[in-house]
Amino acid sequence: MSTYSIKDLEQLSGIKAHTLRIWEQRYNLLSPKRTDTNIRFYDDDDLKLILNVALLNENGYKISKIAKMSMEEMREEVYSLTKRTITHEDQIYALTISMVEMDEERFDKILSTNILKIGFEQTMIYIIYPFLAKIGILWQTGAINPSHEHFISNLVRQKLIVAIDGQMYRDSGKKWLLFLPEGELHEIGLLFAAYIIKSKGHKVIYLGQSTPNDDLLSVYNIHKPDFLLTIVTTSPSSEYVQDYVEALCDRFQKSQILLTGFQVLNQDLKIPENAKVFKHIRQIKELLEDLETVGENK
């Protein structure tokens, strides 16, 4: 079982520590434990409780009313609320609760409801991406543990794979080779790029995580893709990423290479002429729209 400080609860819920202490004293809302050295801490049940409380309070429920609810009543109110509203922040909050509770069924229902309401692409851009960014920060600060991140990543990955399989290739489409560098495992962004590209009728050759350089060259020689797309989040590290980009562009001079990821965006790299850095998935969509326009004008 994980333990949390009141600052962790503040980060996860958005409720100020001062307010949490007042609610604790006035409504007996939380029951902090103490270490052998008398330091207060909270457990998973406290976190689940305060996340539900925060979402209900944000949507107009008075704290005095919330404090009288059982945990099950709170959960049902939260679920009912997320079915009624399409506020992105509320949906992100609800996904956070599902993550902490490791509730796969609830997480899937929230995702499916949003996909029906606003579509798969909009759900990814406005709900899943901000949610993943949020849990990434929480994981780095130790507010959540790696098991939470793996749990969520696998569920999102499953959704993406199903969505990609439903897209069709057009004969007029370009060839795109998508891969992650050796040692790179953060795949969600690459999968979403594959979905966007394939949804526009282009052919996607997907190599996925940690692609060895020799394998990349072998596949390239077979398919001769028009575009290569990769995301550099952690590997190669900052001291080697410039060399990696230059070697990649030199090896595949006849293709347009698209680059993004933390290691690319957070450095002042010298980008070769056959490469382009993109900061957001919208720029990939713009490129795809330009390709469609060129095709129509031929």
Rank of each mutant, 00 (worst) to 15 (best):
L155H: 01
N274S: 05
E182A: 10
K68E: 15
K203S: 10
L132C: 08
L116M: 13
M102I: 09
L51D: 01
L138I: 01
H18E: 11
G142V: 02
Y244L: 07
G183F: 04
V232Q: 01
I6R: 00
W139V: 08
Q25S: 14
L51K: 06
N297D: 12
T35G: 07
L51T: 09
G119I: 00
R75V: 08
V294F: 11
P225D: 00
L30C: 05
I281R: 07
L248I: 02
L269Y: 06
I39P: 03
I125V: 14
I39A: 05
Q140V: 10
A194T: 06
E76V: 11
E286D: 11
S70G: 14
F120H: 02
K279A: 09
L95F: 06
K175T: 09
T293D: 14
L185C: 05
E76H: 13
E149A: 07
A275Y: 03
K198P: 06
E292P: 07
T293C: 13
V294Y: 10
R26P: 00
P236F: 03
L20C: 07
L95I: 03
L95P: 10
K175P: 05
Q267H: 04
E182Q: 15
I137R: 13
V162C: 10
N38Q: 14
I128P: 04
R26Y: 01
S64D: 12
D8N: 13
R170L: 15
G208P: 02
A17M: 09
Q267N: 12
G136E: 04
I231S: 14
I161C: 05
T19K: 05
E105D: 14
F41W: 08
W176E: 05
T260P: 04
I97L: 15
A94K: 10
D45P: 08
A54N: 01
K159D: 03
T233Y: 04
E296M: 13
S255W: 02
I118P: 06
K65W: 05
T211H: 05
A17H: 00
K48S: 13
E289S: 15
F179I: 06
I115G: 04
S218H: 10
P272G: 03
L291F: 15
T3S: 14
S13D: 06
I144N: 02
S5L: 07
V53M: 07
Q122H: 15
T82N: 12
L47N: 03
A193P: 07
K16R: 11
I197C: 08
D45Q: 15
L191N: 09
T87A: 14
E10H: 00
E101H: 01
I125T: 07
Y27H: 11
E239V: 11
N28I: 01
N59A: 04
K33V: 06
I284N: 01
I188W: 02
F278P: 01
L269W: 01
T293Y: 13
I97H: 14
L111I: 14
L288D: 06
K254H: 10
N297S: 13
S153C: 10
I63M: 10
A163I: 04
D43Q: 01
V294R: 15
E292T: 05
E286C: 07
Y27N: 02
S172D: 11
Q158L: 12
P236Y: 06
Q209S: 12
E292R: 11
